[in-house]
Write a protein that binds this DNA or RNA. Structure first.
Lengths: 202, 202
DNA sequence: ACACACATGTAATTGGTTACATGATTTC
DNA sequence: GAAATCATGTAACCAATTACATGTGTGT
């Protein structure tokens, strides 16, 4: 049966660690796959209900203290089967949309400082994320290396790290490029080079 | 005024090259920013109407032969201003969703061959894209180097190339890792806890 | 004659975010 | 007793995809 992606993240997270509430599931998602996957409560709670209605997860008694009314869930055999079925079908890659690159692509329609600002923001974001990812990687090696999922968790982490490093390297070169006089003249002040107008397509 | 992203891509594309029909705009998008941005007709045509209604673009007479009934558009001064305004505001990065990484993350819940298959598909996709990007890069250097947008187009291209190369490198290591006996043959064993982690979104 | 690329558009549906509403428990 | 965090849920909205409907011009 076809389900939305949220359902599978939930199943996967519960397959790793049972007895989590919607609130916890969301936090777990942020802490583990957060750097490449986001979920909102508005999506999680309804999906939880649906999964329970279909018997893929079951509401379970809270394992601990009676905190504010909360409902924990566990994955069922059917749920695990559903997850595995989904895992086996080729991933779909939805057409990416990167507003950063889009604004950069149209960079010549604005002052160079605009593109430079975008790249700086990009750099900061990526640097911060790289730091936390490296930290997480270190912690995972110490605390989680014995879990069967560990090699796969590391795979996603090393992927993230590699991508971030490559992006940061690029961003340095990009900034250097934009700072040089090649592009660096405000279109308002003067015409730097040939009058080349926007008349033809690449 | 706030508009959907599609509006700005259209404005940007028309700012580079005027007098394009919806059909052409879509093709231009695919050929230039296609590797990081997708648009569908169902989005383009209504947006075109809206932009025209707001005076940001104007329907223009077809420059060439009377092909099947078609409507070309040009960007107006107001449209260009709108584009520039949008360019100046910090890009928003919507939370990414990468189903490939998600399936990989849950890899231990399925047979290793499943994850290997995902990575192979990933490799093929990326290799193909890298080839076309390099080709495009070569063509652009020859044909478009005199346009004011050229440096920015190259920036997006080199970014794409760098990311793809890094991803491909990673994928080789990942395959090597999964092919070794390192990864257990026990899809039945469930792990009791998620990895310790402090990754967070700002 | 047929297929294919050109060309435009609408309707149904989805998948999702955001904002809102509510309330308990802990901590300062 | 105020604020922060824990906790669950719904409603409004929206951007976007997909499928559908329709038709023309070109090449084989």
């Amino acid at each position: 049966m076809k389900r939305n992606q949220t359902a599978y993240v939930i199943l996967g997270i519960l397959a790793i660690h049972d007895n989590q509430s919607g609130y916890e599931i969301r936090r777990t998602i942020q802490q583990t796959v957060g750097f490449f996957w986001g979920e909102s409560f508005g999506q999680i709670y309804p999906t939880l209900k649906k999964l329970a209605a279909d018997g893929l997860i079951v509401p379970s008694k809270s394992t601990s203290a009676p905190r504010p009314r909360r409902q924990e869930y566990s994955i069922t055999a059917a749920g695990l089967a559903c997850l595995q079925e989904w895992l086996a079908v080729p991933y779909r890659d939805d057409p990416p949309r990167d507003e950063f690159l889009l604004k950069l692509f149209f960079g010549d329609k604005a002052a160079p400082s605009v593109s430079i600002a975008h790249i700086r923001k990009f750099q900061e974001k990526h640097r911060r994320l790289l730091d936390t990812l490296l930290e997480v990687e270190g912690l995972a090696r110490v605390h989680s290396s014995h879990y069967p999922g560990f090699p796969f968790w590391m795979l996603t982490l090393t992927f993230g790290v590699a991508q971030l490093r490559s992006a940061l390297e690029w961003s340095e070169a990009a900034l250097a490029m934009l700072s040089s006089t090649e592009v660096g003249i405000d279109p308002k002040t003067a015409s730097p080079q040939p009058p080349a107008n926007t008349a033809d397509k690449p």
